[in-house]
Structures are given as C-alpha cells and as structure tokens.
Nucleic acid binder design. Structure first.
Lengths: 331, 331
DNA sequence: TTGTAGGCGTTATCAC
DNA sequence: GTGATAACGCCTACAA
C-alpha cells in the first residue's frame, strides 16, 4: 500500500491549509471555486479518502447502519430478507453509509447487541425487520433516542416510530380481484392464525374484496401455522367442505405450495395464488404477490438519512408500499 | 444515553491511570491481579465499552470484515448466500469482529469498492464468495497484501491464497452412490457447460463414481446453463436417447427441478437428485446435496482471524468441507 | 476566504 | 507494575 494519504498530504500538495481541504470536503460553498478545484484535483490525484475513524471520533457519527440477519427460518422465506439486504446495502452505499450485520437469538440478546454496537461503533441507526406487538426492542431504542426504522408496521400504534411496510391487504386484494376476473366467486383463503398483524392484514384484503363483490366469505377461510404440509392439510379441508371454494388465495408461498399439492388432481383446476414471490414460486409456476423489497430498502435509507441529516425531522415518517401480483401458470 | 464512559472515567473510578486500564484490556498479564480485578469491576460497573474508532485510529485495525452481498441471481440460490452470511456474522461476532456489507455490479467496481472500503474504514479482511479463473479481485488484494479468504477454490492454483470450499465432487459422488445402491446403473448427469470450476468438479464426482462401478458414462451427461427450463429441456433430451438413463444427478437444484418436470410422467419413476439443498428442494421433496454453509463460514473466520492474529501465519491455509446428501422423496 | 489551536479516546513509548 | 506524554486524522471554533 502506498503511503497513507491524509488531509495534510492533500493540503501540502494543493498548497493550502488542512482546514481548507476539510472545507472543500464538508462545506464546499465557503471555499472559493478556484481553490476548491485545485484541492479537488489534489484529492483525486492522491486518491485521498476520508478516514471514517477519525471523522467519527470528532463527530460522533459513524455512517454505519446496523441490520440484523436472521437464521433462515422456515427456509422458504430467506430470499425475502436477502433481497431486502441487498437493496439496503446498495442504497446505503450511495448515500454514504455502510451496512453492518449482527445476529441475535432473542430479544434480550438483541438489545444487548444494540448496547454493544452503540458503545463500540457509534452506530447511526438500526433497521429492524419484523416487529411484533409490544416489541421491547423498539421501546429500548426509542427510550435511548437511537434512530431506527422498522421494515414492518408497529401494529399497536402506527405513529410511534418511523417504518416502511408493504401493504399486504392490497396484495391479497389484487389476488382476489384476479380470481374474480377469472370468473370465480367462491374464493377461499388459507391464512395464519389470527393475532399476527401481517397475517390479519393479508386476510382482510381478501375478505373486503370478496364482500365488495357481494360474496359472503363465511366458511371460506382456514387458519394454520406456516408450512407446506400445513397448507396442504388446510386446503384439503377447505376443498372437502360441502360448498368448496373454486380458487385459493394464500398468505404465503409455503401455504400456497401446500395448497397446490391439495388441488393437484382437482377438476376443474383450482387456481392458487401465493404471497412473497419467493424463488420457489417462480420455480413451480405459482402466481404470487411480489413485495417491492428493493424499494422498501430504498425508503428505509431515505427515512434514516432524512432523520439523520440536518433537515427538519418530520415526526415519524412512514411509507406503505404497494405490492404487485406476478402472474404465472397457477392463476 | 448516560454520560459517555471512556477509559478515563474507568481510571478515575478505579483510582488508576488510563494506561493501566488500557493494559487491563489489552495486556492483562502485565497488570497485578489485584489491580486488574479492581479495574475490571469499574469497567463492569460503568458499562464501559472500547470505542472502536479511537482504537482503530491508534492501531490502524478496525475489527471489521467485509463481504459482498450479491443480487439474488437466478433467485433459486439466494438462500445459500443467506445462510453463509448468517454464519459468518455470528462467528465473526464471537471472535470480536463485525461484518460489513458491500455490493458491486462487476469486478472493476468491486475493486473500486475495496479501495473505498480500505481507505475509509481500514477493513481488516475481505471474504469473497465465488471466484473464477484468473480472478482480478484476488490478484488486486494479493498485490496490496490485504488479508482475504474466498469461499470457493481458486481453480487455477489452489495454493495462491487461503480458501474454504465444499467438495462438490464428493457431493455428486454421494448422490451417484445413492442411486447405484438403489439398483441403478445407467445414471445420467445434468450439468453446466464445461469450463466452470464448480461445474466441472461436480461432474467429475459423478463420472468417477460411475467408472468405479464399472459403468461407462459416455453419452450419459448433458450440459446447459443453469435454469429450470434448461434443465427440463436437457433432461428430456437425455431420456429420449436410445439408451436413456434410469436416474439423474444434477449440478444444481434449478436443473433438478427442470429434470423433475421432464421425468414426471416416466414409468418406472426416474429418481432425481439436486445440489445445494435450497428451500425449493425441501418444498418439492427433492433429494439434494447440502453444503455445510455454517461450518464454511466458521472456517472462513478462523482462517481470517488466524491470519490476522499474532499466531505464526501458516501459508495459505485451506479447508475443503464435505457436503451431505439429504434424502427426500425423489431418490 | 484562509490559517491556527485544541481535542475526540485510544494505545505505544518511555520514564519512574 | 504503574503513570505521564505523544500521536493517530479529523473537525470545529476562533483568529487573521
């Protein structure tokens, strides 16, 4: 590696003081244009880069954003986080920030990680993926005035902190409308147990759309934990009912995959629509609701940098993004 | 946030000098045990944490490891990187390191990122996932003496830098042996075009095992780009041959998924085995070769920290891990 | 508009 | 075994 290039090196090369170089970097407007250019040339020629550690020590800000990477849970949903992370890293990069990863097995340990991370690296912000009712993590961060944004709404009270989310109800509504357009009326829903914000939201999109079309949704839905086997079991149950649905909307691709097994031999064919547009969906030709993960990541960074920057911070900005129905063979 | 706790705070509290505190932290053996304990108590009581920025400024080392997060390529393989990343982050954490993410669209830009990252954050090391013959990135890093390890062998010369990899040939060999054990002899292989290290490696495991069993592999394999459609096409071609295989080993789950479509109506059933054990495989019941990704991540960190630490650095340590065949319905 | 001085928290060097 | 001092690279006053 060549000799370390500091602000002093640049100053000497450009024949100005260190302060002028710093000004060119941080407050270009206070420097005469001609000087600015000369300094900029020196910077480029020398390949100077701001030393973040030194800057951080002075400013107390690290330009680092932390995000948790979870163990691939069900396995099938791993790619969602994957795509989100990529978008986050990319967007953060263009905004001059970097993404740091951390892991934690549970909330208590996650909070301990916050403490560590904050103490050691002066992190600028956290991105939390998925929040639940009465989340201790957001409470902790809020209490300490640590900037953060969640990918996922705070279901108890949408105004308590900044968040970005995808409108799940709109997704299932799109799916339901698609099936209505195909001529179906008795459209079933395979969802998660009541009580999870995300699950209830997705269910509501289906229910409202059906009601709006004049269809009574009673007895047309079933709840179960996420999983392929679960989806198959519950879908079979729906299809065995006296008045079986002729098409199915599912709360996840896992459930939809199971449903697909259940309807395999059905005649006439029973269309199935999943949710999340995971690679599995693409692989098996499953029509599915696609979350705009890249855009979600972009908004997260925007909210964060908006908050972090000097712009007057609006109180708890939020962004609800619309998903998109990806049509494939199954519907 | 409470008042910032620095080494000076601790020193005052414990009634020693700052240097003694630093010694307790970094060279405990030079401090008298009694003093050490008193200082440690003060550290715990105050909740002191080393400020990495300050430490880094002094030592020039950041305790940060950078790893690239790729856009989910084919989509189906995203979960592989995902699991690897999680393991990496976790292991790095326990070793006192953190993982920083970066993205890059191509090699040139990736190298520019190295430059940026190194200049701005004094990164301690890089983890590269996937390398190709004549990789400019490893050359760049080597030339600058930047520590790194690749997840994936350098196919030209396995001794040029530290790496961790999974033995693909062993994986396909396991798969082939499984099919032999099921009584099959004419076992086909659906692979990638010749020339990619990974692909050739996986093909070789199949070929050698077949030869060892006294089967001539001629005309029993086909090459194609990765993809479900491609897999289906090529598998069909194999099955339409005058002497069709009675079972198939595939170089990836994508190809295997395609092959599965091709053999759907076959009678007697044609077993198919995939590679990577992606969630898709689990979803459709595809027997597949599972890479020990967590273990790979652990070894990466070990190689790195071994290199980074003060231990005598062995020249270019390497680790070739054995995959594991996960049996499901298709074989 | 530009230059000078001081300090952020840590560790290395060198006294004691 | 312990403590004072300097320096890492930068930024924010303040002075010129």
């Amino acid at each position: 590696m060549a000799q370390k290039v500091t602000i002093a090196t640049v100053a000497r090369q450009a024949g100005v003081s260190r302060q002028t170089v710093s000004n060119v970097l941080n407050s270009p407007h206070v420097v005469r244009e001609e000087t600015r250019q000369r300094v900029q040339e020196a910077i480029d020629a020398l390949g100077y880069r701001t030393n973040q550690a030194a800057r951080q020590m002075r400013t107390g800000r690290s330009r680092l954003i932390a995000v948790r990477i979870e163990p691939t849970r069900d396995g099938i949903n791993g790619s969602v986080l994957d795509r989100f992370l990529h978008g986050l890293s990319e967007t953060a990069g263009t905004a001059g920030y970097r993404v740091m990863l951390y892991t934690a097995a549970d909330d208590t340990r996650e909070i301990r990680e916050y403490d560590d991370l904050l103490g050691a690296y002066d992190l600028d912000a956290f991105v939390l993926t998925g929040t639940k009712r009465g989340d201790p993590r957001t409470a902790w961060l809020t209490a300490r005035d640590v900037p953060f944004v969640t990918f996922g709404r705070p279901w108890d009270d949408p105004t308590v902190h900044p968040w970005v989310d995808v409108d799940g109800a709109d997704g299932t509504a799109q799916a339901t409308r698609r099936l209505l357009a195909l001529g179906h009326r008795r459209i079933g829903f395979v969802g998660w147990p009541v009580g999870s914000g995300v699950g209830d939201d997705r269910r509501l999109g289906w229910e409202h759309t059906l009601r709006a079309a004049g269809v009574d949704p009673t007895d047309l839905d079933r709840q179960t934990e996420d999983g392929i086997g679960e989806g198959e079991r519950v879908a079979r149950d729906l299809l065995d009912a006296p008045q079986p649905p002729t098409a199915l909307v599912c709360a996840s691709d896992s459930l939809a995959l199971g449903a697909l097994q259940a309807v395999r031999a059905a005649d006439p064919a029973v269309p199935v629509i999943g949710f999340d547009d995971t690679p599995v969906a693409a692989a098996v030709g499953l029509t599915s609701v696609c979350q705009p993960l890249h855009q979600a990541a972009v908004r997260c960074v925007e909210l964060l940098t908006g908050r972090l920057g000097d712009t007057p911070r609006q109180t708890h900005p939020q962004a609800l993004l619309k998903p998109r129905l990806v049509l494939r063979q199954t519907a």
